[in-house]
Amino acid sequence: MSTIKDVAVRAGVSYTTVSHVVNNSRPVSDDKRVRVLAAIAELNYVPSAVARSLKAQATATIGLLVPNNTNPYFAEIARGIEGYFRRHGYCVFLCNSDNDVATQREYLRVLHEKRIDGLIVASAGDDEHASYALSHAGVPVVIVDRPIAGLPADLVQIDHEAGAALATRYLVDLGHTRIGCIAGPATTAVSAMRVAGFRLAMAERGLEVPPGAVVEGDFSSPGGYAAASILFDGIAPSAIFAGNDLMGIGALRAAAERGIRVPADCSIVGFDDVELSRYVYPSLSTVGQAILRLGEMAARTLLDRIDGTVTGPVRKHMIEPRLVVRESSAPPGIPFFTTHDSKQ
């Protein structure tokens, strides 16, 4: 691999002259510039990004920490973030904590050592160490989707409680009164907010939430399958609100295995509107959010801090949820209420 000194020898100039040409840091005569550029091309010289970043005190790299990169929701968020930063000359280091707090701590340490310019975090769960580490990260931080208690950082998220309430009211207004809820892990604030929205809407409509109507899952399809199986064998709901689309898809499988027709015997509504929810059968009604735009908003919020466009108090961007009605929900006893996306 060629070095800056190799280029200097080939061009017949000092290596500091090569540095000035590469970094455009000082005027260089046209003759020398042409010779340097020719030498760079001949030797396939690639400037050291590390050396340049040390000089500029910036690396043009962003850290992105997600709890589960196999979850389509976080994959779509990451795509929005990566695409936005790529268009603005940054690269993104993606780290997957696998919903493990200890792994999250290790990645926070590693990302700090990489001298990133900023960090976007979707937390694996409540963790006092994460709050402390991010508060002392020394770079701008944006939290997406999952708030971290005690951390003074910009936050971009959907209104989880309002979205869950929206889905539940919709099911009640269809005529369902025996409604089950598949919650996410009790350790996540997102799950707690979505369950709170479910309970709020049930109370607003004068409906009780009987024992056994809320079953904890883990935001995965197997977790949704297991939780729905408990609901079907227990309260036998005519409708289920699932705390995310993957658990809703798992519930569809559990219903099919029991010969429970969706939506004639049981309506199912998810949360997130991941792309996959459009292509399962029946297609999954859900509480949606523009996930790519959510990622882009998080990226834009961070870049505003990095380049100094925004200073001062932290900001909270709350995205209003929308209801996306598809084939998996209908009034009790009706096979299909709609066969097309209907957004409310």
Rank of each mutant, 00 (worst) to 15 (best):
S2I: 00
S2P: 15
V21T: 03
V21P: 06
R33T: 15
R33F: 09
R35V: 03
A49D: 06
A49V: 03
A49F: 03
R52V: 03
A58V: 00
T59C: 02
G63H: 04
G63V: 02
L64H: 00
L65I: 12
V66L: 15
V66Y: 01
P67G: 06
N69F: 13
T70S: 13
P72V: 08
F74Q: 09
A75Y: 05
A78R: 00
G80I: 08
G83F: 10
R86E: 15
V92F: 09
V92S: 10
F93E: 00
S97V: 00
N99C: 14
V101M: 15
A102R: 06
R109D: 01
L111V: 01
L111P: 03
R115G: 00
A124W: 05
H129L: 09
H129E: 10
A130W: 00
Y132P: 00
A137N: 00
G138V: 00
R146F: 04
P147W: 07
V156F: 10
I158A: 13
D159T: 00
D159N: 15
A165P: 04
A165V: 01
T168H: 10
T168D: 10
L174D: 05
R178D: 13
I179G: 12
G180N: 09
A183L: 09
G184K: 12
A186M: 10
T188S: 14
V190Q: 09
S191T: 02
S191N: 07
R194P: 07
A203Q: 14
E204V: 08
R205D: 07
R205T: 01
V209I: 15
A213W: 08
E216H: 07
E216S: 13
D218Q: 02
D218T: 01
S220G: 05
Y225D: 03
A228G: 04
A228T: 03
D233Q: 11
P237S: 07
N244W: 07
G248M: 11
I249N: 10
L252C: 08
L252N: 05
R253H: 14
A255S: 15
I260E: 04
P263R: 06
D265W: 09
D273N: 14
L276R: 02
Y281F: 13
S283E: 05
T286M: 13
T286L: 14
G288E: 06
A290W: 03
I291D: 08
M297G: 05
A299N: 02
R300P: 02
R305N: 03
D307C: 11
R315V: 07
M318A: 12
R322F: 15
P331H: 10
F336W: 08
F336E: 13
T338E: 08
H340T: 10
D341F: 11
S342L: 12
Q344Y: 12
